[in-house]
Design a binder for these strands. Structure first.
Lengths: 341, 341
DNA sequence: CTGTTAGCGCGTTCAA
DNA sequence: TTGAACGCGCTAACAG
């Protein structure tokens, strides 16, 4: 079998506790003792049994990260940021995919993994607002990326403010008929709704008339759906001179179709995305977008979660990350005359 | 504290063992007993303590997946596939990023997480061939995506054959001066070397002369480095009419620069990638590429690993996934006359 | 500075 | 078909 502390203790001629002390870097050990123990550890190839330690301590040193899909670049990059933040704080991340399905999001709240992690970072996408009560779980949890209620810590991006800024950016560039791609009609608190609200807010503030025909639905926020939405819009014949993709994938898909259909970006149509994923730096033209502060979100979320795991019982906290408008080629020039489809 | 089997047993008026039997779906239990126990479980909100079970059973039900970076789309998609395959088989995946750094890859082989997982799926990128001995670990391991030696199970893509096919595809389209982007000079067994070998093989077989000036280095296989490599190539003035990007990211980066510099794809230059990531379906033009059989790789790798975890001691196995040439727009037309830079 | 003791919560003997 | 006792490997008390 595996070599245990017991074996090491016997070999080093000390007690099991001393071995434990050495392994756990307990400061008050005689150098000579430490050396002997270390030697025994090396000789025997001993490795601490993490599971036993976890059982004993009642903690696992793991946190869960439940997100829609790793193959969505935003979430892959978020996972990356979270893992780095966690590593810097000495904990390990256990990723779970929910496929952005309501059922599976609920499952994640109650899966077997919950007994394996000390807490959960949860990025729900499909959960309905009337289900926020289900978020009142009995373990440490921090919500990511959305505005939902319930007595839970949240770290969110400034969805409304940032999409307002994105839309204003297009307006400042001269756009007057700005399409919004990615709407989820009927939704009352998800990103889609919030970003739509920001879009409406910007239009209203700038006195730019709202035209519902410029709002295009897209359930999943993939490039494919962005491309589809743009095709639909072009086919509809409704004129537009700007596009606000509710995330970069949608915007990049739209960009692709615009190009294919001979619409020049940014000359005929200016385009903005949201998320600032890596890809936005390599599209043709380079995609203007919103940097939602992903690093800050990841670090703050891990910090809040570890604070809860540490036993904090302060009131639920809401942290909104700082965002930035990233102006690249796709919004460099506004167009003055609306363009027909 | 948390409710234990003990509490459930007392409440149901049975012994701990009976509760355990119910929880573990042991067949021979009187329906009445089962009902009483189940009721107690529900009333108390009992949840099995996975850590305790793990300690007792000597297994954790988790497998590690060590890969370079989640923000590289190929690996994000691979992780997705692996997690699905694992879930279907009832195990959980613990992802670790190595940043494609030799040091961190070695660390992954020996990290604390190794005591937390029953085995490891390892996708090394930076490890040197003379270090294959380090892969002789004392826990179940399956290597992914590379050809390395040592007595270890491997699941790999057909790097040489597939890149040969990709190059032949370009040759069939009329290309005679095909640049290869992504080389790692000096490497002897990594993907870069293997794909380069396939490229050389295709040229030789088709009687197309090899010109070393057409081989461009690129350390990291990101879009940015692909873009850089293409700029370098164009600046060099060496004529070419085809590009084989050793992965899609490199090819997409190259595509971007070609477009920006006014070189028409596929009219002036045909382009092939490798990996068939999602993005290849949304570039302008659509990127031709190699589908390396990622699903098959993920499923086979998980199966092999679980087999080892189950105690199999058969000889190390090598599985090579089936690949496919995916011809899209970027290689639709060959060009007949070489083009100057 | 180091040793002894007593569980963490579960599964697995072995009886009954 | 169910119960009682033991121990997986470790750490927290406490003692010395």
């Amino acid at each position: 079998m595996a070599v245990t502390m017991h074996d090491v203790a016997r070999r080093a001629g000390v007690s099991i506790k001393t071995v434990s002390n050495v392994v756990n870097a307990y400061p008050h050990i005689r150098p000579e003792t430490r050396r002997r123990v270390q030697e025994a550890i090396d000789d025997l190839g001993y490795r601490l049994n993490t599971t036993a330690r976890n059982l004993r301590q009642g903690r696992t040193g793991m946190i869960g990260l439940a997100l829609p899909e790793l193959s969505l670049p935003y979430f892959a990059e978020l996972a990356d940021s979270v893992m780095r933040a966690a590593e810097a704080r000495g904990v390990v991340v256990l990723i779970e995919q929910t496929g952005a399905q309501r059922e599976r999001e609920l499952q994640a709240l109650d899966s077997a993994q919950r007994r394996l992690t000390d807490g959960l970072l949860f990025s729900p996408l499909a959960l309905e607002p009337e289900e926020t009560e289900k978020l009142e779980v009995d373990y440490p949890m921090v919500l990511l990326g959305e505005r939902m209620f319930g007595p839970v810590d949240h770290v969110t991006m400034a969805n409304v403010e940032a999409s307002r800024a994105a839309t204003l950016h297009l307006i400042e560039r001269g756009c007057r008929r700005i399409a919004a791609i990615g709407a989820h009609p009927g939704e009352t608190m998800g990103s889609a709704r919030l970003r739509y609200d920001g879009y409406r807010k910007a239009l209203a503030e700038a006195g730019v008339p709202f035209d519902p025909r410029l709002v295009v639905e897209a359930g999943l926020w993939h490039r494919a759906t962005g491309a589809e939405a743009m095709s639909t819009l072009l086919d509809s014949g409704v004129p537009f001179d700007g596009v606000f993709g509710m995330n970069d994938a949608l915007a990049l898909g739209a960009l692709h179709v615009l190009h294919a259909r001979g619409v020049s970006v940014p000359h005929d149509v200016a385009v903005m995305g949201f998320d600032d994923v890596d890809d936005a730096r390599y599209s043709e033209p380079l995609l203007s977008t919103i940097d939602p502060g992903r690093e800050q979100i990841a670090q703050t979320a891990v910090d809040l979660l570890l604070d809860r795991i540490g036993g904090s019982t302060v009131e639920p906290r809401r942290v909104v990350a700082e965002f930035q408008v990233v102006a690249r080629e796709s919004s460099m020039l506004g167009r003055l005359v609306p363009q027909g489809g």
